[in-house]
Design a protein around this nucleic acid. Structure first.
Length: 603
RNA sequence: GGUUCCGUAGCUCAGUUGGAUAGAGCAACAGCCUUCUAAGCUGUGGGUCGAGCGUUCGAAUCGCUCCGGAAUCACCA
């Protein structure tokens, strides 16, 4: 049997193709079949010669020869069977295969700017943001929003049909607290009168409530009450609970106040969302959804999958799954958070025919979502496993966790404004804004400031806790958003000059040119783009994109520094360099867009 | 106490379907702008990958034990 069939088309040659040829080599040389999955084609490490590396250790049992001899025999086979292979080297059990220059230039010529060929076409619903209307957005929310937005873009880039939803927590005892404080001590103040964003104003009253409440509790304790008694019986909390009852009874005065204050908050949120570029396809309000789920729970009683206790409360027994009993309806028949999430999940599943429902929610709710899935399973919803809790880590300050009520939070608006200010200061110091109009300047500092913030957050693996140090603030040098934006702006500048000189960027260039290591390295990374985008979607991890684009930008800067593009005398080579630059710029722009970050044409 | 997650350079982070000498940035120090944007590039120093044991030809990566940190275990959301 003759396996050797010279490839005529470089396009076919992928890592998978090489694996396949490797299997053929084993078959041919040692008359055995190996599972293609066992063949790991890796990128050759920088310190060694070669483009792809295969470790032959796992196949020594088959070859019954030394690592060196096995690798050499297979190397020889591959050199014959794949015409694009120019050379190979064997070091210990590592087979390092080099491909020809023309192979790599051909790869560059065939880069399509259409994303990903592995189109998924799933209906994916993603919930993120989910703010409370009793306080302004802080850095933790910013992380949530950026992750949610970026994941949506990444999933779309892989061909999925993505619906972005927000679930606003606009009711409950905590909302009543700020309402009550405003009623008592607000003297009719409004955002306009206070000259303050509405969400900030309402947040102030929430903090004020907590302060006054703590005073009352302290008084009660000094009068001999236990801490628990004091916390339950303080006048303010009793008033807040009464207000909640009135709200649930549709009391018109309370409703009016509630609408008014929530309206202030929404206008405030809207501003912050606009600044960050966060949008949703649909917004749910808990005041409208909190009744959902009751029916499903009651049905669970009739089928016997849930337990009704003596006090009439209803719960799910999750002890066999390693969790505790979970209350689903209180003894007075009212529902809890879990009940609502059961209801909304069922509703959304139907409404969007969702194949997957992703919840971007902090890791403090791991238990909650674990329980949610198990309850849905118990209730007989077989799609319970299409729920995925993307639990992201906390943003911590050097002194620990942020706490709204204690005022130790990094406010989103303040932080964004600081980023703008820093971007402006640095740009002016570097003299980057000379000769630009006010409008252009404003646009650049906005793009760069936000770029720094967003990249800073998204380059970290979502599931890990991360630290933000307000004193050191966010950098603009090194592995940062501005560094990548700067690389883009530099390329654009070169391309503008090329255009002035009458050098067009050709879509494909001659393949018989010499390329150096750094140029090859850039091509390899560009070729890898689709894999990265698909990895990021599979892992639901924007940091994969961030790290990838950083590496590409870093390599490009090295190339840019060491080799002149416009002064290249060889026309073929100049065309190549222009194309390489142009495609790099496109990849930077695409990746940054997947992260929700803009790139400036100059900076 | 139970469950889950985390521990990599002084600091912030990459690297984990097991592969070669563990990488970046920041900070420190030393260089590079009559040359396409120096928000850049180059170099130097910096590590018992929390500790130990095990599995393996091979472990930062897998398993067990321990140490340290975080989250959670509500008729809150």
């Amino acid at each position: 049997m003759l396996y050797i069939c010279k490839d005529k088309n470089y396009k076919m040659i992928t890592e998978n193709y090489i694996s396949n040829e490797f299997c053929k080599a084993i078959n041919n040389l040692y008359s055995q079949n190996v599972d293609i999955k066992l063949v790991q084609v890796q990128k050759t490490k920088k310190d060694f010669n070669g483009d792809y590396t295969i470790n032959v250790f796992p196949f020594l049992k088959i070859s019954k020869k030394s690592p060196e001899q096995t690798a050499t025999e297979i190397g020889n086979y591959l050199k014959d069977s794949i015409s694009a292979v120019s050379n190979f080297e064997v070091i210990k059990g590592f087979l390092n295969i080099s491909f020809s220059n023309s192979f790599w230039v051909n790869k560059l010529n065939n880069i399509s700017n259409i994303d990903s060929e592995n189109i998924e076409h799933q209906n994916i619903l993603i919930e993120y943001s989910s703010p409370n209307t009793n306080k302004p957005l802080h850095l933790g929310h910013v992380r949530n929003n950026l992750i949610g937005h970026s994941l949506s873009e990444i999933l779309k880039a892989n061909g999925n049909n993505v619906t972005k939803v927000n679930l606003v927590n606009d009711r409950g005892i905590h909302i009543c607290k700020s309402m009550l404080a405003w009623q008592k001590w607000g003297n009719g103040i409004t955002p306009e009168k206070a000259n303050k964003k509405g969400d900030k104003l309402v947040g102030d009253f929430y903090v004020l409530f907590d302060k006054e409440y703590k005073k009352q509790v302290a008084d009660l304790i000094s009068n001999g009450k236990t801490k628990e008694e004091a916390e339950k019986n303080a006048g303010l909390i009793i008033e807040a609970r009464e207000m909640l009852k009135k709200w649930e009874a549709n009391d018109s005065d309370i409703f009016e106040l509630w609408n008014k204050m929530n309206g202030w908050v929404y206008r405030g949120f809207e501003q912050t969302y606009n600044l960050l570029g966060i949008t949703f396809d649909k917004t749910y309000y808990e005041s409208q959804t909190y009744g959902l789920g009751k029916d499903a729970v009651l049905k669970g009683i009739t089928t016997g999958t849930l337990i009704k206790k003596e006090d009439n409360s209803i719960c799910a027994d999750l002890t066999t799954e390693g969790l505790d009993e979970k209350i689903l309806l209180r003894s007075d028949g009212t529902s809890v958070y879990m009940t609502q999430d059961i209801g909304t999940a069922i509703m959304r599943k139907k409404e969007f025919n969702a194949d997957k429902m992703i919840y971007v929610v902090g890791n403090e709710q791991i238990y909650h979502f674990h329980a949610l899935k198990l309850v849905l399973k118990k209730l007989g919803y077989e799609w319970y496993n299409s729920i995925f809790h993307l639990s992201y880590g906390m943003v911590e300050l050097p002194e620990g966790k942020m706490k709204s009520r204690e005022g130790t939070v990094v406010d989103a608006d303040d932080l964004i404004q600081e980023m703008f200010d820093t971007a402006k200061t640095i740009s002016l110091e570097l003299g980057k804004l000379e000769g630009l109009t006010e409008k252009e300047i404003e646009q650049i500092i906005k793009i760069v400031g936000l770029g720094a913030l967003k990249y800073f957050i998204l380059k970290v693996d979502p599931k890990k806790n991360m630290l933000f140090n307000p004193v050191e603030s966010i950098d603009f040098n090194g592995n940062t958003g501005p560094f990548i934006q700067y690389t883009y702006a530099r390329i654009k500048s070169v391309l503008r000059k090329a255009n002035d000189l009458g050098f067009a960027v050709n879509k494909s260039v001659g393949e018989n040119i010499e390329i150096n290591e750094i140029e090859k390295s850039i091509i390899k990374q560009i070729v890898n783009y689709n894999n990265i985008v698909s990895d990021a979607a599979n892992e639901l991890n924007p940091s994969i994109i961030a790290n990838y684009i950083y590496m590409l930008a870093k390599d490009y800067n090295l190339f840019y520094h060491d080799y002149s593009i416009l002064k290249e005398e060889n026309e073929e080579k100049r065309n190549f360099k222009l194309l390489l630059s142009d495609i790099t710029a496109t990849k930077i722009k695409n990746c940054m867009s997947l992260l929700g970050i803009d790139v400036p044409e100059r900076m």
